[in-house]
């Protein structure tokens, strides 16, 4: 008897939370991609000593403290300890960038900071250095719920992201929603289709044998449906990221994740 009331309460609470925070994806039972993995892969992610993504985080820590560019400043020179200054930052990205008046993702922001504040040479998309810095910054928010900024300037871009998510593309004529909304949990070939929540980026993908960004993953999917993929850093791909983070709102960040 004693156990029943709290459980009911928890159930109600969960229902309320789900009701209030299910804006974009109309998804009640949000689950991280980690929930769809094998127990072995989950254990690999859970233990920092067996998670290869931690190499990127450790590299990122060194880069954070290394002076770069004409100003000779390191990230730490302005931002100090990442553990405090960067806590929760990744959970709010992509955010609105005042200068370009567009949404900008975390890697984009790091690149901008490098260009304008450090006056250093830009890091190419998917370069190990940029991935490492992004992973280090995002790692500081591990465990925090994804909380997209309530900035109405982002709304039109987010809507466009949603349109892109729902638009059928490629020779296979599939949209993101065709698999990740309508058929999540089912199998595509041998692998389970998760709900497509970007909770753990940058992450170590076993298929890549490397750490990669959400943009790399999105491009993979586009190539998979035989569409022409958006370029790294293209406005559309950032808008997709923006919508996906809104759709995943409330799920805890896991960076660095491990995925098959």
């Amino acid at each position: 008897m004693t156990g029943r009331a709290p459980r009911l309460l928890v159930g109600l609470l969960a229902a309320c939370l789900a009701g209030s925070s299910a804006p974009a994806g109309d998804m009640v039972d949000k689950r991280s991609g980690a929930d769809f993995m094998s127990p072995e892969n989950r254990a690999m992610q859970a233990d920092d000593m067996s998670n290869p993504g931690m190499f990127a985080v450790l590299d990122g820590e060194q880069l954070w403290n290394r002076p770069e560019g004409a100003n000779g400043r390191s990230c730490a020179g302005c931002h100090g300890e990442a553990a405090t200054s960067m806590r929760g930052v990744a959970a709010r990205y992509p955010a609105f960038d005042e200068r370009s008046e567009r949404p900008i993702d975390l890697a984009g922001r790091i690149g901008e900071c490098r260009r304008t504040r450090q006056e250093a040479s830009p890091l190419p998309h998917e370069s190990p250095e940029l991935i490492a810095l992004t992973a280090y910054v995002a790692h500081q928010s591990r465990g925090m719920p994804i909380s997209p900024p309530q900035d109405e300037r982002l709304a039109p871009f987010r809507d466009n992201g949603r349109r892109l998510y729902e638009r059928r593309i490629g020779q296979l004529d599939l949209s993101c929603a065709s698999c990740h909304d309508a058929r999540s949990g089912e199998r595509l070939g041998g692998s389970v289709m998760p709900q497509g929540h970007p909770t753990a980026y940058p992450l170590y993908r076993l298929e890549w044998q490397a750490v990669g960004s959400l943009q790399r993953r999105l491009r993979n999917c586009m190539i998979g449906v035989r569409a022409e993929a958006f370029a790294f850093g293209a406005p559309e791909i950032v808008e997709l990221e923006l919508y996906l983070m809104e759709r995943a709102a409330g799920l805890p960040l896991e960076t660095p994740g491990v995925r098959p």
């Binding site: 920092d48 000593m49 067996s50 931690m54 190499f55 450790l58 590299d59």
Partner: peptide, 8 residues
């Protein structure tokens, strides 16, 4: 430089 994670 060695980049290794040791757990003992």
């Amino acid at each position: 430089m060695t980049r290794a994670l040791i757990n003992a």
